[in-house]
Every structure is written in structure tokens, then in C-alpha cells.
């Protein structure tokens, strides 16, 4: 059985799209196809009208798992993308310093990842991806392993960073609140093989306050509506 089937959608420039659905619905598979890690068995993924084959140059990827290199300090982790592009010396140091302050990691530049909390490591992973200025940002449940408080912190952080530079973001999550907090549009998937069940436009204005927005009518309405659809999926999953 394929992981996803008949999934077709378009993502606009600088749009923030979240994909939610029950586990095993092929959310990650979609992301991996966009990122060129997995080739679709049928159909095509196109970025700017060109089909994806292999890892595209202008795409950044933030994994759920901790992918900060443990043998490199925070500074040298953030410098990775620049190093790969041959940007060294003064230019590299300047951009890394900017990224460090952007992520509020001042004072931790020379720390090794093992000494940092999970939230800080994910912060490093995020700015490490952003420092090379990707046009498209793929995020696979990047805050899935964090506690609620750290998660809210990073939501605010991500929204602020995204507000400054507006990448196109595809954000996978199974946390509905997270999806509503962050996204312009939410794609709700069915259980395996994943199909698109519903596309929801989040009408919350920006900039958003990650704490206060949860008390707004639009948040509650969105939550209720998507929850109802997801609930149907869970019920069908159980009935099988």
C-alpha cells in the first residue's frame, strides 16, 4: 500500500502551510518527496515549475530528530552551510554572529550540543538552516519532542524569523494547536494511504501572539472544525 495517494496541492510563494493527520498518513513522505530524499512512484513534485530530483539547492530541512552535529560547537554548527558554500573568514564570522543573536544564543557560541537543552539544540538546527537563506523551508515535526513551554517559545521565535524573511514553509505536525498557531493554510490528511481530507484557511491576522491567539474565536473555530474532521479519521482507524 502506498504511503500517500492522489495528493495534489499547490503552495504559494512565501506561504506557510502545515500538514496535519494521524500518524502513518504519509505526512513525512510528502515532505521527503519535496526535499528530494524520496522519489514519487507516480506523479511529480515541482518547484518553480521544475521537477525535483535529488536534494534541491534552495531548500532547507529541519528534522524532528536532533541533527545538530555533536562534535561541533554551536558556532561551527551554524557555520556549516556557509562552510559548504566556501564562505569563510570575516564574511562567515559576520553571518554566524548575526544568526547567533537572531536565535538568542549569545554566550553559547562555543558550547557543544551535549551541554544544551533540547529546545536550544533545535534552535541551533533552525538558524543553521536559515543562515544560508533557503527559499523553501521544510520542517518535519521539528518541535515534536519538546515540552509545551519550550514549544511556545520556539513558535514565537519561528514566527518572528519567518516574518523577517518570509520563506515558503511546509510544516509537518500532529499537533493541531501548533498548526493553527503557525500556518496560513492547514492540509488535513486521511489515514493511510494518505489523501487530502480538507484544506483549512487560517484567518488569524499576523503578527500573531502565540499565547493570546489561543483565546480568539477564530482559533477555537478552526480547532473545532479540524478536530471534528480528524476525529472522524480516528474513528475510522479504530473501526478497522
Amino acid at each position: 500500500m502506498p504511503a500517500v495517494s492522489g495528493v495534489s496541492f499547490e503552495i504559494g510563494d512565501e506561504e506557510f502551510v502545515a500538514i496535519v493527520g494521524p500518524s502513518g498518513c504519509g505526512k513525512s513522505t510528502i515532505l521527503n518527496m519535496i526535499g528530494g530524499l524520496v522519489a514519487p512512484t507516480a506523479g511529480a513534485i515541482e518547484i518553480d515549475g521544475r521537477p525535483v530530483s535529488g536534494v534541491p539547492a534552495n531548500v532547507g530541512y529541519v528534522f524532528q530528530k536532533d541533527t545538530v552535529f555533536p562534535w561541533r560547537s554551536v558556532r561551527r554548527n551554524i557555520a556549516l552551510g556557509l562552510e559548504y558554500r566556501g564562505i569563510r573568514g570575516e564574511a562567515q564570522a559576520r553571518r554566524v554572529a548575526a544568526a547567533v543573536s537572531m536565535a538568542g544564543l549569545e554566550g553559547f557560541e562555543d558550547a557543544f550540543p551535549a551541554t544544551l537543552s533540547g529546545g536550544m539544540r533545535q534552535r541551533v538546527a533552525l538558524v543553521r538552516t536559515l543562515v544560508v537563506e533557503p527559499e523553501i523551508l521544510l520542517m518535519d515535526e521539528p518541535f515534536g519532542a519538546l515540552d509545551l513551554h519550550t514549544k511556545l517559545d520556539l513558535h514565537a521565535e519561528l514566527l518572528r524569523l519567518w516574518g523577517e524573511r518570509r520563506q515558503t514553509v511546509v510544516f509537518i505536525t500532529h499537533d493541531l494547536s501548533e498548526a493553527i498557531t503557525l500556518a496560513d493554510r492547514i492540509v488535513v490528511m486521511t489515514r493511510r494511504p494518505g489523501r487530502i481530507k480538507m484544506v483549512y484557511d487560517v484567518k488569524l491576522p499576523r503578527p500573531r501572539d502565540v499565547i493570546r491567539l489561543r483565546e480568539t474565536d477564530e482559533y477555537l473555530r478552526a480547532y473545532g472544525e479540524i478536530w471534528h474532521v480528524l476525529g472522524e479519521e480516528f474513528a475510522r482507524e479504530k473501526a478497522r
Binding site: 536534494v55 541533527t67 552535529f69
Partner: peptide, 20 residues
């Protein structure tokens, strides 16, 4: 996943070898 992240950050095969 470390190899994948290096690729997404723009690493060539040689750079993946050297840095990962």
C-alpha cells in the same frame, strides 16, 4: 539524518565525508 542535513545545507560528497 546527519548526512541528509549536511546535504540540505549544501554539502558535496567530499564535504559529507569530511564533516559527517
Amino acid at each position: 539524518d546527519l548526512i541528509h542535513s549536511a546535504r540540505f545545507l549544501g554539502a558535496s560528497e567530499r564535504q559529507v565525508m569530511r564533516t559527517v
